[in-house]
Computed example of a mutant assay.
Amino acid sequence: MLFAHDTECALLAAAALVNTGGVGGEGLADVAALDAFFAAHSYTGRHEHTENELRAVRALRPRLRRIWHADIDEIVSIVNGLLREHRALPQLITHDDEPYHLHAVPRDAPLATRIAVETAMAIADVVRGGELRRLRICDLPDCDNVLVDLSKNRSRRFCDAGCGNRAAVSAYRARKAAART
């Protein structure tokens, strides 16, 4: 494991959230989609199941997407801004049979606040570890999805939307076409 478990979970959830607003269309189309996102990324605590909550979570995406495109100084500014804005106060917490991990806002804080702060804390770990190169944009030319490369050899190039498979098929077809000429 490269980072603490809660850091890896927050990074993967942040990338997934950012990718719900990519060129593939609206991935958080309704409250039911937010419910599915909440469950898929094992969020706990307050979840209102409302349109207001959905709008607040969607509103985070541009700010979080910026992290994948920014230099270190801008990333630090975004992280510090999120932590300051949400009055983060890191504390060690255990719940739901999970080992101790950091929470920086109460479990009853709004979902968008918890996502923002958990992402900021995780990105802070990435910055402190000198691992910003693990935050990448998908290598497929028509894809703008982001990804977190947690592989040992830092070799992940494609997002989870099937882009690696599409790239392999395209390369295979190009080789076949070249062999025919």
Rank of each mutant, 00 (worst) to 15 (best):
L2Q: 12
F3W: 11
A4T: 12
T7Q: 11
E8C: 12
E8R: 15
A10R: 02
A10S: 14
L11H: 07
L12T: 11
L12E: 13
A13W: 06
A13T: 06
A13D: 08
A14F: 01
A15R: 00
T20Y: 09
G22Y: 11
V23I: 13
G25F: 06
G25W: 11
E26N: 15
G27M: 09
G27H: 07
A29M: 09
A29F: 12
A29E: 15
V31H: 01
A36P: 01
A36C: 08
A39G: 08
A40L: 12
Y43A: 11
T44S: 11
T44K: 03
T44F: 07
R46G: 03
T50A: 05
T50H: 05
E51R: 14
E53Q: 10
L54E: 00
V57H: 01
V57T: 04
V57E: 02
R58M: 08
R61L: 08
P62L: 12
R63W: 02
L64V: 01
R65C: 03
R66H: 09
R66I: 00
W68V: 00
A70L: 02
D71I: 05
D71Q: 14
D71Y: 06
D71G: 15
D71V: 09
I72R: 08
I72C: 01
D73V: 08
I75S: 00
L82N: 01
R84H: 10
E85I: 06
E85S: 13
H86C: 01
R87E: 12
L89N: 14
Q91L: 13
L92T: 09
I93G: 00
H95Q: 11
D96V: 04
D97Q: 11
D97W: 05
E98D: 07
H101C: 02
A104L: 04
R107E: 15
P110E: 14
L111G: 02
A112E: 10
T113A: 14
V117N: 00
A120Q: 01
A120C: 04
M121Y: 03
M121W: 02
M121G: 02
A122M: 07
A122T: 07
I123H: 03
I123L: 10
A124P: 02
A124S: 15
G129P: 06
L132S: 04
R133L: 13
R133A: 14
C138F: 11
P141L: 07
P141W: 09
P141F: 06
D142H: 13
C143I: 10
N145P: 05
L147V: 10
D149Y: 06
D149V: 05
L150S: 06
K152T: 13
N153M: 12
R154Y: 13
S155L: 13
F158D: 04
C159V: 09
C159K: 05
D160M: 09
C163F: 12
G164A: 09
R166G: 07
A167C: 08
V169S: 03
V169T: 12
A171Y: 10
R173I: 07
A174L: 03
R175F: 10
R175C: 06
K176S: 08
K176E: 10
K176F: 02
A177F: 06
A177S: 13
A178Q: 11
A178V: 07
